[in-house]
Amino acid sequence: MFKRIPSAPPGIVAFDAEGKITDSDYKTILVPAVDAAIKEHGKARILIRFGPEFETYTAHAMLDDAVFGTAHYTAFERIAMVTDIGWLANSMRFFAPLIPGKMRVFPLASQDEAMAWTAA
C-alpha cells in the first residue's frame, strides 16, 4: 500500500510503498493524489520511498504504473525514487530519459536530500 509521508512540504506528493502494491493502491491512493497535485499546481512533484517494508508489485499494479506514466507523460515536473532496491533503481534509471520531467534515484539514507530536490 502507499502511505503518505506527512513531513512532505506542500505541493509534494510523497508516499512510502509498503507491503504489496496493488491495482487498488494505484486507483484509490496514488492516482487521485497526483491528479489533485496536477490540478492545483499544473504539474506534479512526486517522491516515493521503497524501503525494507516494501515487498512487491502485483502484475496488475505494474501495468497500472505503465498506464499511469503514459497517461501523465508530460505532467511530471520532478520524480524522486528513494530506495536501496537495485531492480527498482535500475528500472527508474532506464526509463528516466524517456520522461520529459526530471527524475532521480536516491539511496534510503538520502531521503531528506531527495525531498529537498523534489521541492526545489
Rank of each mutant, 00 (worst) to 15 (best):
A66L: 14
M62Q: 15
A44C: 09
L88S: 05
G51F: 11
T56A: 06
R49I: 10
R78G: 07
T58V: 09
I21H: 00
I38M: 03
D23Y: 05
T22R: 03
L47W: 03
T83C: 04
I79E: 05
D64H: 00
A33M: 03
T28M: 13
A36H: 13
R49M: 02
V82M: 04
D64F: 05
K39L: 15
M62V: 13
F94Q: 13
G86Q: 02
S91P: 03
I79L: 13
A80V: 04
M62P: 04
K39G: 06
E77S: 05
A89S: 10
G42A: 08
S24V: 13
T70S: 15
T70A: 13
L63C: 09
V82C: 06
G51C: 05
T22P: 04
R45P: 04
F76N: 01
G69V: 04
A89F: 12
H41K: 13
F94K: 14
M92F: 06
H41A: 10
A80G: 05
E77C: 00
H41W: 03
G86P: 08
M81C: 14
H41M: 03
R78Y: 05
I29R: 06
V67Q: 14
T74Y: 04
T70L: 15
R93V: 10
V34H: 05
T74E: 08
A80L: 04
D25F: 01
S24D: 15
A33R: 07
M81Y: 11
T56V: 02
F94L: 15
I38P: 12
K39Q: 15
L88D: 09
K39D: 14
A80M: 06
T28E: 15
A59G: 07
Y73E: 06
E40P: 06
I21L: 10
M92V: 15
P32N: 12
V82D: 05
R49G: 05
I29V: 15
Y57D: 00
A33F: 08
A36V: 10
A59M: 14
S24W: 02
T28P: 03
M81N: 10
K27I: 12
D64K: 01
L47M: 08
E53Q: 14
G51V: 04
Y57A: 05
L47E: 02
I48C: 06
